[in-house]
């Protein structure tokens, strides 16, 4: 009888442990969501700062605006990349991927912010003659684009090595955002993965060396001389 009781206690303890893990994981998920939201707020803040600088150019002259832009550009790039990484990490850890409404919502917001930032950057580049190479990376989910993940990995490597000289914008075309659809038709992207580097399309998988060769043709990067 006492032994039977031990089995019941054991079952209770095991159940308690499982529930504890469930609760801890729920708490961690909240923290992960908060971390993503914080990064999204940081993007908006950076974006508003750049918008302000852009607005100031009309009042104080372009020279002053371009001076401010140079200092914000690298920071904005970093914030955007961090947010993207944080969302991807969230996806990997929660392992819920496409079914998670939070992930989808943040991914949509992030992509929209990327389009906004890219548009602003494009405008400022023309006005201020900023020498920043931009790569637009269009991808789909792995089922319909087996090499998209590989290309994404190569671009991560490029970003880690050349983050100060290259701005990379990754667009998830499965999200069905109208702004991304406009970019797709503007750049005439029909196959995936596809990169638009300084207005020119490079579709298919490019390894690091091939991509560096393309980038070096466009601009004199530090990696091109070393």
């Amino acid at each position: 009888m006492r032994d039977k009781k031990l089995f019941a206690i054991g079952f209770g303890i095991t159940l308690f442990l499982l529930l504890s893990i469930y609760v801890i994981n729920g708490f961690m998920n909240n923290q992960r969501e908060q971390a993503v939201l914080d990064k999204m707020d940081a993007i908006l803040e950076e974006y508003q700062e750049m918008q302000t600088i852009s607005l100031m150019s009309g009042i104080f002259g372009e020279h002053m605006a371009c001076f401010g832009l140079q200092s914000r550009l690298i920071q904005m790039d970093k914030t955007l990349w961090d947010a993207g990484t944080r969302i991807d990490k969230y996806r990997t850890i929660t392992e819920e991927f496409m079914r998670d409404p939070f992930y989808i919502e943040q991914k949509r917001k992030f992509n929209r912010n990327e389009v906004m930032y890219y548009s602003l950057l494009k405008e400022m580049k023309q006005r201020c003659k900023v020498n920043q190479t931009t790569i637009l990376f269009f991808y789909k989910k792995a089922e319909s684009c087996p090499t998209c993940d590989s290309q994404s990995f190569v671009l991560t490597d490029i970003n880690n090595a050349l983050s100060d000289e290259v701005s990379i914008f990754s667009f998830d075309t499965d999200l069905g955002l109208p702004s991304i659809d406009i970019l797709l038709s503007y750049y005439n992207v029909t196959e995936y993965p596809c990169m638009v580097i300084e207005g020119q399309n490079y579709c298919g998988l490019f390894n690091k060396n091939q991509l560096l060769k393309v980038l070096c043709k466009k601009q004199n990067l530090t990696a091109c001389t070393s």
């Binding site: 893990i21 469930y22 994981n25 961690m28 923290q31 992960r32 971390a35 990490k89 850890i93 929660t94 392992e95 993940d149 590989s150 990995f153 190569v154 991560t156 490597d157 880690n160 090595a161 998988l205 390894n207 690091k208 060396n209």
Partner: peptide, 28 residues
Amino acid sequence: SYFALTNFNFFEHFHWRELLDPLAISAF
């Protein structure tokens, strides 16, 4: 296969900070 595309450049992808990130701890 990923690293083969980047000349097996492991160091660019290895960050201690990420290993110590408590938010990277999953239920599993």
